[in-house]
Structures are given as C-alpha cells and as structure tokens.
C-alpha cells in the first residue's frame, strides 16, 4: 500500500499506467495476440528511433525550453552522412563526424540564440527548423544534383549503427537502451540533473545560486540536435540512402512521448524513465494498431485520447506528490 502510494507520486507513474492501459485496450478491443505483439520488431524499431530524440527533448522541456528543430536535424544527419561518404566517397568516419558536427553546430546556434535573446526557444527552433530544411535541400541539389543520395557503408559501420538483429530488430534499439541508462544516471543520480530541474523550476534563482544556466542550456540544445543527427545517420547507414524529406513527424511524436511520459510542459518536473515509457506507449499505440482488428485510421484518435488521459493523470499525481504528508513515524 505504502509502496503503491510511493509509486503514484513519481513522475513516471502516469506513463506506466498509460502503457498498461493501452496494451489492455488493444488486447480487449483489438484482439491482439500479446506474444505476437512482443515478438514484433516494428514498434520497437519505431520507439528506438523516436526515443533517442525524445530523451534530450524531454530534458530540454524539464529545463524549461523546447526544441522542434529536431524535425530537420534527422534528414540533416542522414544527408550529411550520405553526401560526404556516399557522393564524395570519403571514409564513413568522415561522414559520421560530419553529421554529428552539424548537430553540434545547430545545437550551439539554438542554444546561444536562446540564452542571448528573449525570444522563446519554440520560435527560435522553429526558425532553425525551417532554415535547416532549406539548407539541406539546396545543399543536396547544389552538390549532388539530387534530393536523394545513396550510401554504401562499410561492414563495421553497418554492424555498429545499421545492423538488423535477427533480421528485424534495428541495432539502434541497443543504442536507445544504453543512452537511456546513461541519461537516467546523469539526470537522477548526479548533481547535474539537479541543475536541470532547478532551471526548469526558476531559471533566475538557479542562476543566482551559482548554476551555469547558460552553459547547461546550450549543452542540452547540443544534445537534442546531435541526437537527432545521430538517428538520421543510423538511418542512412541502415537504409543505404538518405532523403531530404522526412523527420517532421518526429517533432510531434517526441513531444507527445515526453508529455505522456510525465514531463511538465512548463518545466521543472519529469524523469528519464518516464520519457522512455512514454515513448514505448506512443510506439505501441502508433504501430501496435496493425496487430489489431481496429481500422488503423483510428490510431490518431487513440493517440489523442492517450495524450489527454496521460496528462490528466500527470496533473492528478503531481497534486498527490505536492500534498503528500508522511504519516507520523515510519520505521
């Protein structure tokens, strides 16, 4: 009972309940065969690609900022890799470093603009989102004369970034799990995590208490843009080609995952595990519908309802956490 109460006050409580509710809903109303669902790769692949971007986006949200330029950073990452290593036939390492450098660069631009101006980061990253789309398209056409570039990655790069485990599960799933563990450790077990939460709670006070808020903000923006570029890079290596389009879905998908995962949109509250579970939930709703007898045109309705229910539960549980007063004495 006590343990259950403790669970309900955690930021990820609602996301775990949502996840169970979605699975139960699909089983009861969609006639899903659970063993088939859990054996399937589609939604896990989907979750992993999304999840790697969702975590840094969620951390930015906890710190009180938003980054939607990730939508352009995924094709930017894959195109940079494909143009450098595919079209110009440079070593794959150059292409990969190029992709990640583009991520770092855009992250720095986003971060510096956010800390140096009073423009909300939503608007700033909307600007860099559109600008990056333009840059990718014109650079691709200008350099290669095409909007789609093939890439033939060497075996080792395929093995590390673009392998299909058992012929179905993308290796990026392992990257996702490892990155989740690292992020969860840093955010919840080290002092730096405390800084992110403090910044989301009250940026001015956090700065006055000596936290290098500007530096942390820029680093978080670098992480989100670079993570998106990393996902793009892995996709280019896996699919042997890169397109200038695509990636825009990631913006809303990531935000839905993060919010369903218990992160407060205005900052200061959330958890990495919550974002992880929120991403899983979103992926199961989005991809799991193919395992049901439900017409897949309904999936967006379910996503909308899940989002509202999850946020509603988040509010309730946050209230619970705030009003929590421990019993007189527990031994």
């Amino acid at each position: 009972m006590n343990a259950f109460g403790h669970f309900l006050r955690r930021p990820e409580a609602a996301s775990i309940i949502s996840l169970l509710a979605v699975i139960a809903f699909y089983v009861i109303f969609g006639g899903v065969d659970l063993s088939k669902l859990f054996g399937a790769a589609s939604w896990v692949n989907f979750a992993a690609n999304l999840g790697i971007v969702a975590i840094p986006v969620g951390l930015l949200m906890i710190s009180g900022e938003l980054d939607i330029s990730i939508g352009a950073m995924i094709p930017a990452g894959s195109m940079t890799t494909a143009i450098l290593s595919g079209y110009y036939e440079l070593p794959i390492l150059v292409g990969m470093l190029g992709a990640l450098s583009v991520g770092v660069l855009v992250g720095i631009v986003n971060g510096l603009l956010t800390v140096r101006t009073t423009v909300p980061s939503l608007i700033i990253t909307l600007g860099t989102l559109v600008a990056m789309q333009g840059i990718i398209l014109s650079a691709s056409v200008l350099l290669t004369g095409n909007a789609s570039v093939p890439l033939d990655a060497p075996a080792w790069a395929k093995f590390v970034f673009g392998q299909l485990i058992g012929g179905s599960h993308q290796i990026i799933i392992i990257w996702w799990v490892v990155l989740t563990v690292i992020f969860a450790f840093v955010v919840h077990r080290t002092r730096y995590g405390n800084w992110i939460f403090a910044m989301g709670g009250d940026r001015d006070s956090a700065r006055n208490l000596g936290i290098p808020t500007n530096r942390v903000t820029v680093i978080l923006f670098i992480l989100s843009a670079t993570s998106a570029a990393f996902v793009g890079m892995c996709q280019a290596i896996l699919f042997n080609s890169a397109q200038v389009s695509g990636g825009m879905n990631f913006i809303f998908n990531a935000i839905v995952s993060v919010v369903a995962g218990g992160v407060l949109l205005t900052g200061g509250f959330g958890s990495v595990i919550g974002i992880f579970v929120g991403t899983l939930t979103f992926a199961i709703v989005n991809q799991g519908i193919y395992f049901t007898q439900i017409d897949r045109n309904w999936s967006n309705l379910i996503i909308g309802v899940i989002l509202l229910v999850a946020v509603g539960m988040n509010e309730t549980f946050r209230e619970k956490a705030l009003s929590y007063v421990p019993k007189k004495k527990k031994t």
């Binding site: 405390n194 800084w195 403090a198 709670g201 006070s205 208490l209 946050r318 705030l322």
Partner: peptide
C-alpha cells in the same frame, strides 16, 4: 522557488 523539487534537493541546488 523550486516547488516541484524535494526538500533535500532544493536545499542543495548548486552545492549538491
């Protein structure tokens, strides 16, 4: 100023 942080965590913000 950090209503959503725990007492222990907010007490030591910046000097954890």
């Amino acid at each position: 100023t950090f209503p959503l942080m725990s007492i222990g965590r907010s007490f030591f913000v910046g000097v954890e």
